[in-house]
Design a protein around this nucleic acid. Structure first.
Lengths: 141, 141
DNA sequence: AGTTAAGATAATAAGCACTCTCAATAAGCC
DNA sequence: GGCTTATTGAGAGTGCTTATTATCTTAACT
């Protein structure tokens, strides 16, 4: 029940918020831009304004329900926060996005930050490249 | 002589390009936004249009003379490419930007990409946090 | 050195992603 | 159900970046 999740996050349960949350939970695409969320909702016949999509996603981010990533070229995408931090590998050719986590890298980062007297808030590692999938050309994620 | 550098990069040597390149080489700030480059040139009495600054920086990036980084919040900065790759540590409080390089992380990244069948183009690691400098509040870099 | 064609520039307009404003609407509480 | 207040939708507005275009520079060629 999504309305419970919203309440837990300190957000009033409203129709647009439910719709966005459901979409993020059920879409095959894990990583979506605000525009994609908006279009997907329109296609489902849900009449939610673009401004609301941005507002809701920003609120979700502040509430920790979603994470936002700023990729190269100003592209920014949202993904459901499912508790486990991870980094990203992006195919610059087909747009596919893969996730990975590496404990060695994580701990090195903590060591570096400590050595430099930094209190880490957040960190992100993006690897850009070309994937070897046969369906590379036209897929999206 | 900067005009040689431009020619080597396949770019015609023009006044605005020279000015931008000189600025990046001589400024204390290693990381500058397009706006900052523009303002700095204006202050030096150099009459270069903002559109030209963007165009020149984009050309420099394509030519490998500078690197561009897209930080959180849509902030994007340019830095002179001095041959050695490095990652970034950003203070979210004072805006200071530190650079670091860690061979362990670098090689782990290559391993991960290989395992996932990726040909790496580029990668970037950003650590966001709060630095412990006494002058943290108001400095900029 | 002067001429000329190719390429670069400045200014402005346009594009894009995102935010603000505000009247209309919907939630949660009684 | 009615009341109070937060939320929404639509469109205008903003900020950063790119395209257009008429003008100007550069570099190669006399």
């Amino acid at each position: 029940m999504e309305s419970q999740d919203l309440k837990k996050a300190g957000l009033k349960s409203t129709l647009p918020r439910m719709r966005v949350l459901q979409l993020l939970e059920n879409s095959e695409k894990r990583h979506m831009t605000a525009e994609e969320v908006y279009k997907a909702l329109m296609e489902c016949g849900e009449d939610v304004g673009l401004a609301t999509v941005y507002r809701v996603l920003t609120q979700f981010e502040a509430a920790g329900l979603v994470n936002r990533h700023y990729f190269e070229g100003g592209l920014s995408v949202f993904e459901l926060n499912q508790g486990h931090h991870h980094d990203h590998l992006l195919c610059v050719k087909c747009g596919k996005i893969f996730e990975f986590i590496d404990d060695t890298i994580e701990s090195r980062q903590r060591q570096i930050a400590e050595k430099m007297g930094f209190a880490i808030n957040d960190h992100c590692l993006y690897i850009y490249g070309v994937c070897q999938k046969q369906n590379c050309e036209h897929n999206q994620d």
